[in-house]
């Protein structure tokens, strides 16, 4: 009994419940024939939002005003650069991965340097950074569309034990993120900063150091996601990150992470990502177009934030 109540008080449970309902509704409409295929496709596409979402979650946990708008540009640049470096050779796969990670680290450092040196809000710092990164990506991407190495691309598109490999990677990343958040000193620190950055400072937490690491972490995860997405879709496209700007924020919010900061959870991002993709498939199955899909997505986000805000007011 108390276990049920305990479960109900977890904010992430709602996103999973919603995902399950939408899954059933879709499968039921197609007479059950699509159950397996739908699940696999959902896991595949959700995996990418999960990876960027986890990074964005760490940043949002830091408190009001903290948000990383450079996510899509980072994805594009790391995808293009990595593919270029690998140059369709299987032997270069790890080097490409390293390049992607380095791109992430560099952008993360750049982001925080702007925030700190120019004393500008993160939103405008990451925005100006994303302009520059985007240009850099356009410049490197010029010319032919480079394919990913054969081995990498088949890895990214295939399955282990019936589960997409990208979803397994997302699971691995999420597990590490969960341990960081719940068990490590770092997790405590970002939560403390998110609740009150001044109180955190007065409790002896190195606020700047922690925020710096968080912005780097977010950029690295976005870069990793760009690397995987480019390998998965057979090449890097300039607009490949575009939809992940709003998506990364949306899955964090729907997943039950407090927008006001200090309180976040990893499972919710899974529920929200699965849900977001399932809504798309359901509306497609029912024959609705992109317009209705977008409107519903927006209304869901607003409904979630209204419900979450209400909880806060009560407390």
């Amino acid at each position: 009994m108390s276990a049920v109540r305990n479960l109900g008080s977890r904010p992430w449970i709602w996103s999973f419940a919603a995902a399950a309902i939408v899954w059933v509704a879709t499968v039921w409409f197609t007479g059950g024939s699509s159950a397996f295929g739908l699940s696999q496709a959902t896991l595949t596409f959700a995996a990418f939002s999960i990876i960027v979402g986890v990074g964005q979650m760490f940043v949002i946990t830091l408190g009001p005003g903290n948000i990383d708008l450079s996510v899509p540009a980072t994805m594009t640049l790391s995808g293009t650069l990595a593919l270029k470096v690998m140059d369709v050779q299987d032997g270069m796969i790890l080097v490409g991965l390293l390049v992607a990670v380095l791109v992430g680290v560099a952008i993360g450092i750049g982001n925080y340097a702007l925030i700190k040196l120019l004393r500008i809000p993160p939103i405008i710092a990451t925005l100006s950074m994303s302009f520059i990164v985007q240009s850099f990506a356009i410049w490197t991407n010029r010319g032919l569309r480079i394919k990913p190495p054969e081995m990498l691309s088949s890895f990214a598109t295939s399955y282990s034990f019936g589960i997409p490999n990208v979803a397994l990677i997302a699971l691995l990343i999420s597990t590490v993120a969960w341990v960081l958040l719940e068990k490590s000193i770092y997790g405590r620190w970002i939560s403390a900063i998110g609740q009150s950055s001044f109180a955190a400072r007065m409790a002896g937490i190195p606020v700047d150091g922690t925020r710096f690491v968080t912005y780097v972490l977010c950029a690295v995860l976005a870069a990793l996601c760009g690397y995987l997405l480019a390998s998965f879709s057979g090449g890097a496209a300039l607009n490949m990150g575009a939809e992940y700007l709003l998506m990364s924020i949306a899955v964090v919010v729907i997943g039950g992470t407090a927008v006001a900061g200090g309180n976040s959870n990893v499972p919710g991002i899974w529920g929200a990502s699965l849900f977001m993709f399932l809504v798309v498939s359901m509306l497609n199955t029912y024959g609705f177009g992109a317009g209705v899909r977008l409107i519903l997505t927006g209304l869901i986000i607003i409904a979630v934030i209204l419900a979450a805000g209400g909880r806060k007011a009560v407390r």
């Binding site: 709003l246 924020i249 949306a250 919010v253 992109a290 317009g291 209705v292 899909r293 977008l294 409107i295 519903l296 997505t297 927006g298 209304l299 869901i300 986000i301 607003i302 934030i305």
Partner: peptide, 9 residues
Amino acid sequence: LGMSFVWGG
């Protein structure tokens, strides 16, 4: 952010 989806739709 939510409204941006609505207007886009």
